[in-house]
């Protein structure tokens, strides 16, 4: 017994070090896997408050760009509205609005893009109806998926994150693939596993596919920058240039698919029966 106590006293610094290192490695490993319980994240009162304070100052620098983005979106929507061919025959049934998708706006208060796993922090959380796994977009294209939520704040797993996998397709032909990011340039992402029969051409548009319950179909992602067949010659891997400037994201829309639960329950039942 005496020896054990002596041992503990003699190596107390090493034991403390080993314990703390173990703890931080556990946190690190958790952060590398998708949606594990993560204790250390920026969706909390303290970091949210500090980020809001910083954002209150820095938001002025980007005000002009954000205003221009909003104007561009407004004019595009107005154009769609005014150019609807026959406003009488295409009666818009307002009672059906918002039954499939619910949209909430939020302000981005923190954004990184230089790491391998990047996150954004939103100044809107559970109280504003934001939940885990909702899609986040801007007027130009997709941004990411909601990761952790606290009463006042939420973190978003950016598409610039090595754990991010988003179903996407060619706008022209409906051939789909998986959108991933391998690090490096924050304007380029990779679209992998596209069938080699797909008519891929430089400059073509990539949009979200309808296969995921997170994003609605047809949200813009980017254009094809370059493409190549993988070594097995069965699949294309495509470099996609994003519509969004991920280094300057101000206001975002959070999209909730209200049918999601129903779809998932159904799929789960089908899987269980097999």
């Amino acid at each position: 017994m005496q020896q054990i106590v002596n041992f503990l006293i003699k190596y107390r610094n090493f034991l403390l070090f080993a314990f703390l290192l173990f703890l931080s490695l556990v946190f690190t490993i958790q952060s590398h896997s998708y949606h594990r319980s993560k204790f250390v994240n920026s969706a909390n009162f303290l970091s949210g408050g500090i980020f809001t304070a910083i954002d209150n100052v820095s938001t002025y620098f980007d005000l002009k760009t954000h205003n221009e983005q909003l104007l561009a979106e407004n004019s595009r929507l107005r154009q769609q509205l005014l150019n609807t061919r026959d406003s009488v025959s295409q009666k818009i049934d307002t009672s059906s609005f918002g039954t499939k998708f619910k949209i909430t706006t939020a302000k981005v208060i923190n954004n990184n893009y230089s790491h391998k796993d990047n996150f954004l922090t939103l100044k809107a959380g559970r109280d504003a109806g934001i939940k885990q796994d909702l899609g986040v977009i801007t007027s130009k294209g997709i941004v990411g998926i909601v990761d952790k939520v606290s009463p006042g704040y939420a973190t978003v797993m950016s598409i610039l994150n090595s754990n991010s996998q988003i179903n996407a397709k060619l706008k022209k032909s409906n051939h789909f693939g998986i959108l991933v990011w391998k690090g490096g340039d924050p304007n380029l992402v990779d679209l992998i596993d596209v069938q080699s029969k797909a008519p891929v051409k430089q400059g073509d548009t990539i949009v979200t596919g309808g296969k995921s319950t997170i994003f609605p179909e047809g949200i813009g992602i980017g254009t094809i920058e370059q493409f190549a067949l993988d070594p097995t010659e069965n699949f294309y891997s495509i470099k996609v240039k994003l519509f969004n400037d991920m280094t300057n994201v101000g206001h975002v829309y959070v999209i909730e698919n209200l049918d999601r639960k129903e779809i998932q329950t159904l799929e789960q039942e089908t899987r269980d029966e097999q």
Binding site: L20, L21, L23, S24, L25, V26, F27, T28, I29, Q30, S31, H32, K38, V40, N41, S42, N44, L46, S47, I50, F51, N110, N112, H115, D117, F119, T121, T155
Partner: peptide, 13 residues
Amino acid sequence: IDMFTNSGGMHAA
């Protein structure tokens, strides 16, 4: 630092 950058425990380690 990890809390603010959502990086798990890398800076701590």
